[in-house]
């Protein structure tokens, strides 16, 4: 019998390993290994990310010091206005709940439950933008829960859950589609992620202008309604353009996220569960 060359044996073995990995991965048999790696890597990953981010930020911002100073002043003023507005809204919200209780109607969801989770890793592969967080099925996290920034802006939704960890598909992921509308308007459309991790407002029906605030519309059942997503930054195209290219800036500062809030009371109606 002729002797097989070593390379043929190696390639065959690797192909068998691919099949084995595929089978084990799909049946969930590698989940203990995955949990082990995630537990082992999360402190180091968080530490590295924490240490490296200011360094990159420094190199990125060094040429924009003047712009940043102006922006800082503007943001301080805006922050003051928003704080005052927030107080007014808190008072109004309390009043609405009181009135709903008096009238025995319920439109405001009082059962919303948020869990605070720590971001342990940023996953950026071609067309993919995800984060991993340190809460899993033992904490009550389910696929389809939505994830918000500590300030309440939309970050993404849970797409995969292991025992102690979960993966979140970010709004900037190219596969992400969010049914949205302009605040205080009937204009609606779809916010989608781009490969460059920016956002676009597509299939718009109605009038829009730069500076319009976009919130989720709740259509489709993947995200609940009225969650702030971003602001229209740029509209490319003329008035005659049927579908102009609309760039949206997300409210959530994705690369600065350390902590996120998971809304465990909302579970998306995903296509596969219909």
């Amino acid at each position: 019998m002729p002797k097989l060359p070593r390379i043929a044996i190696m390639v065959t073995s690797l192909l068998l390993v691919i099949v084995l990995f595929s089978a084990l991965g799909r049946t969930g048999n590698l989940e203990p290994v995955q949990n082990l790696f995630l537990i082992g890597s999360s402190p180091l990953s968080s530490g590295l990310s924490k240490g490296f981010k200011p360094l990159m930020g420094f190199f990125k911002d060094i040429g924009q010091a003047d712009n940043l100073r102006k922006e800082n002043t503007y943001l301080k003023q805006e922050n003051e206005q928003l704080r005052n507005k927030n107080i007014e809204l808190e008072i109004t919200k309390k009043r609405i709940i009181e009135l709903e209780q008096a009238l025995k109607i319920r439109t405001t969801d009082l059962n919303t439950a948020f869990l605070a989770a720590t971001v342990i890793g940023f996953i950026q592969l071609p067309f993919r933008a995800e984060i991993s967080i340190n809460l899993g099925s033992v904490d009550g996290i389910q696929t389809g829960n939505i994830v918000l920034s500590p300030q309440g802006s939309l970050v993404g939704r849970i797409t995969s859950v292991t025992k102690n960890y979960s993966f979140v598909r970010l709004v900037t992921d190219s596969r992400s589609r969010i049914a949205s509308q302009v605040l205080n308007s009937t204009t609606s459309g779809i916010i989608s992620g781009k490969p460059t991790r920016e956002l676009e407002f597509d299939l718009v029906i109605g009038n829009i202008k730069t500076g319009d605030i976009l919130i989720t519309s709740g259509l489709g059942g993947i995200f609940p309604a009225d969650i702030p997503v971003g602001v229209i930054e740029k509209i490319a195209g003329t008035d005659q353009t049927a579908f102009p290219q609309i760039t949206v800036t997300a409210f959530a500062q994705i690369t600065n996220l350390r902590t996120v809030l998971v809304d465990t009371s909302f579970i998306a109606i995903l296509p596969e569960s219909r």
Binding site: V17, F21, S22, L24, L30, F37, S41, L125
Partner: peptide
Amino acid sequence: LTLLTGSITETPYEWVLLAYLPTI
């Protein structure tokens, strides 16, 4: 590398292995 990257990035293990297979 396949096991580690597949685990922490949630990319199917077989794809990670295929991606780096030309190293052989």
